[in-house]
Design a binder for these strands. Structure first.
Lengths: 162, 162
DNA sequence: GATGAAAAAATTTGCGG
DNA sequence: CCGCAAATTTTTTCATC
């Protein structure tokens, strides 16, 4: 019998070759770049690019594509992080459900260290942040305390290099 | 004289209509979806979708497109945030330049509150994180102290709703 | 602005090395 | 695994409403 799916292997991740890496880097910068252009750039056929991309979708390396929106151009001037402490660790699922219902919460992390939950917020202005914090977040009964980090600028924004 | 470029206007952002919003939401989920399909879905022509997308690129609402990679599938098991305090506020540019040179630093924020700089890290495992922290980050002389928040999971990950 | 049709370009498939 | 080339689909342009 063959048991090659070693899920308990410490190195359980996909190995990719150099062409795969180049394709991923290119698609990180522009997900709509024609495969024919990548083919020319990397000295292979467009069909090969197509095959590589499909395989990486299959294996889960590629999770999808998305357009990047500029929050400020849409009127979302404020970015901040909020560290949340819960009254009891078991309240985590209930609090998460309430946070998920707030459109301004764009990311949430379950963390060790100073906070139980750590979230990223985008809102229109400081007033909107104030109202969100007081009326929506601190109103969640299972939350014991919050701490806000206001982001003034984001000088680095990128993905890992494959 | 006409002075319509009110950069000091508190509402200085692009107004978009309902079709624009629908297109953006669709492209947030799949940046490669054919315009013809969106056209059918929203009851307009493919040419209209094309015009709308081009306009939103022009006005800066659309910043580009990117493929989403699964860090774990590529062997990056660990995600964490590090809060950094500097010895002097003026050291900010020098420290930022050094952080930018570290591929594991995927995001950096200039923040008010407990930390001067707040960064997000992706690395292969805890050992790699340990080495990065001690050998690369705490070795930056302008850094006074660091605080690490390890992320155990990320239950929410999305962009703002246009 | 939006549209339909035409032109140009890109994706996708299947055969063969 | 790769490439060629055909078949299909998509993007892009443009005259017209």
């Amino acid at each position: 019998m063959n048991h090659q799916n070693a899920v308990e292997n410490e190195h359980d991740f996909q190995r990719i070759d150099n062409l795969d890496k180049q394709v991923l880097v290119a698609l990180q910068h522009n997900a709509r770049v024609p495969y024919a252009e990548l083919a020319k750039r990397f000295g292979v056929s467009a069909a090969t690019i197509h095959v590589r991309v499909e395989k990486m979708k299959q294996t889960g390396i590629i999770n999808g594509t998305q357009v990047l929106l500029d929050p400020k151009a849409l009127g979302y001037q404020v970015c901040c992080f909020i560290g949340i402490n819960l009254k009891a660790a078991g309240d985590y699922p209930a609090v998460l459900a309430k946070l998920e219902a707030l459109a301004e919460v764009t990311e949430a992390y379950y963390t060790t260290g100073h906070y139980s939950i750590f979230i990223k917020i985008r809102c229109r202005n400081i007033d909107a942040l104030h109202r969100l914090l007081v009326d929506q977040i601190q109103a969640i009964t299972q939350i014991q305390s919050t701490e806000t980090l206001l982001s003034l600028s984001q000088p680095i924004s990128r993905q890992i290099t494959p």
